[in-house]
Design a protein around this nucleic acid. Structure first.
Lengths: 208, 208
DNA sequence: GCCTTGTTTAACACGTTAGTTAAACAAGAT
DNA sequence: ATCTTGTTTAACTAACGTGTTAAACAAGGC
């Protein structure tokens, strides 16, 4: 039999199944046999390809982190005003989490749970983010000097934006438990309105 | 030997150790033998008193949830203006998390991880919180009618406040990994400033 | 002095899960 | 026809962690 590199190869099937299971349950609650089953593949084969669970997990984790980072980098090609830039940043990040709703909790959970993953996170993610932060800061300090916006630290800004965006999707599953308040409207509509709320909160805050 | 109910009793020692370990590592990563060791007590005794790990955990969990709820209820005895009430709410919640910095992640983590705990959470926590929400909403709707504040939903308000407050203490441990940005100042000072930031963000948002 | 209750010791039963191994098979490549 | 590589089967190990159990001990209460 030939080594097939296409998507239907067993290796890819395992990776795909691993992604699903790890994202849904996190590292510890995920079982290699379950992943193998879901991939329609023998449990021994999983170890044949990836040797360890940790190994398989790190592939998935690194890939998701890359996705996350890319979502940051899209922004900074255009030259916008500070307000436009921040609005765009809030919305882009919000949309990203909205598209990958499992990620906020997944990232927090795994980064908290393991030293190894913290290292992957800080080494792979933070350096790339530094550039984006610097670019926002440049524009921010300019506007502050001109007296157009309030004196806020760029890190405070990013933490605030990310708090609102990530936390919102962490607690989204709770919607199921409070049906009266959350889910009476169309979910997509609620999410869209919440995005605008985040933009409002951030822009009004830095507004002078 | 007599049953001693004071704090130095073995039962209390186990509970105390359990609290420490569970808060630091969460349910799954905590091992009963470790808890027994930390309590300076034999592993069999832990089961003698609490029978199961789940049992022991739920005692700790319920106690922490109660603490959390109490921190909400302090507020609503005084009659304040809406602005004062919201400032006070933000600050009280922030101070609570500041005092119990492990709680934000602990609560999120355990509520996400187990159906049982979600039930404890929704049954024990949410009903009590409803009252507080209703009281804030009363004042809020009043002020909105008078045109003094922006039209925001009370749930949006609470979610925003709690996002900022909880998420901030979830990511606090990250401070260790980015020493240049976070920890150049006195930590207590940084936290105090951040509290003011949260108040600013929320009040400027609803301000007309 | 004996009973009771709290406590230790140490061994064990049991389930779960990661990872291994050896033997057989399937099919394309040579 | 044989070699190679991917794959299955099925059994096994080794480790770990929860919970149990029985026997002994310690000390206050009767």
């Amino acid at each position: 039999m030939m080594k097939e590199i296409d998507d239907s190869s067993k290796e890819k099937q395992i990776l795909k199944a691993a992604e699903e299971v790890f994202l849904a349950k996190g590292y510890n609650a995920s079982k290699t046999v379950e992943i193998a089953e879901k991939a329609g593949v023998n449990h021994a084969l999983l170890h044949y390809y990836f040797r360890t669970k940790e190994n398989l997990f790190n592939k998935v984790f690194a890939e998701k982190m890359d996705l996350f980072i890319e979502s940051f980098e899209k922004l900074f090609s255009l030259n916008m005003s500070l307000t436009e830039l921040i609005r765009s940043f809030v919305e882009t990040q919000f949309d990203f989490f909205s598209k990958h709703q499992e990620l906020p909790y997944f990232i927090i959970h795994e980064v908290m749970a393991s030293e190894t993953r913290r290292e992957i996170f800080t080494q792979q993610f933070f350096p790339k983010m530094q550039k984006s932060i610097a670019q926002i800061d440049l524009l921010l300090q300019e506007e502050i000097k001109k007296g157009r916006v309030k004196e806020v630290r760029v890190l405070d800004l990013l933490v605030s934006i990310t708090s609102l965006n990530m936390f919102y999707f962490v607690i989204r599953p709770a919607e199921k438990f409070f049906p009266e308040d959350f889910s009476c409207y169309n979910i997509q509509q609620v999410i869209k309105e919440r995005k605008q709320t985040h933009v409002d909160i951030i822009l009004h805050w830095i507004e002078k």
